[in-house]
Amino acid sequence: MSYTAWILLTASLVGLSCGLMGVFLILRRMAMMADAISHSVLIGIVSAYLITRELSGWHMMVGGIIAGLLTAVLVQWFNSRGVQQDASIGVVFTTLFAIGVIMIATQVGNAHLDVKHALMGEITFVPWDLIQLSWFGAIPEATLILIIVLIIVVIAILAFYKEWKITSFDPMLAASIGIPVALMHYLFMSLVSITTVAAFDAVGAIMVVAMLITPAAAAYLWTDRLSIMLILSGTFGVISAIGGYYIAVFLDTSISGSMAFATGIVFMISFLCSPKHGVLAQHFRTVKM
């Protein structure tokens, strides 16, 4: 596959997995949690590197899950002890992220892992880091990891669709009929963590938030059905990823930045034009009346 094709495939995989996870993040009112996890996974990634001294995607995945769950647990813990939810999120992730930054600056400091890379990602490097699969041939490691993560995300959503739906809509009812609400929450947080780590290489900690939240927020404006919202959000994620790449080529600028910008454009179009919540539709409704 050509260089451009690998980048487009990688970016689309980021858009798709983030778009799917984002739907539940939005419906669980946890958009800020995505921001938190996307930053605090850094400490997991750096720790994994320091322990193994290898820059391997699999080690980082484990480190990222642990850091993501640690974030979720700490936020919950502070919250249960009287700290407000948003303050609790703000305190936990900035502190964990800061430790991650200090660790990179003092302990790691090499060309493969630096703060700028962690924040912004560098999708242009992805096609260079190939691994050989006997049955397939050469494939970028980041792309392979994203494919596996997407498969895990899709299987998890199909398997726990009704559990996540009911715990998002009415956690009290869910608990009263015996669905393990806390377990489903932490399972979900683990998946957000692996999605974030997988997307990290390509788009970095800041842009992954755009990929997680914005396509889902746009999809919410178009439909009244959860299943359709998932399909739309995934599609918007892919459109933004591919569109963003060509914007970047056209303007000769940052690819991850352009992809995040593209999610913003998709959202603005939805905000203006969606038949249900769109500004234009509402305007015409009032004019008719």
């Binding site: 419906l27 009112r29 009704k162 559990e163 739906k165 009911i166 998002s168 809509f169 009415d170 009290m172 009812l173 869910a174 009263s176 009929i177 015996g178 669905i179 919410y220 439909t223 009244d224 059905r225 959860l226 359709i228 919202m229």
Partner: peptide, 26 residues
């Protein structure tokens, strides 16, 4: 158990039948 009506988000993307169906999820 029937929680207070105000305890859930009525903007959730779902319809009436689906909400009733949730009672059977267990």
């Amino acid at each position: 158990y029937v929680p207070q009506r105000g305890s859930v988000d009525w903007d959730f993307p779902t319809d009436a039948l689906d909400v009733v169906l949730m009672g059977l999820y267990g």
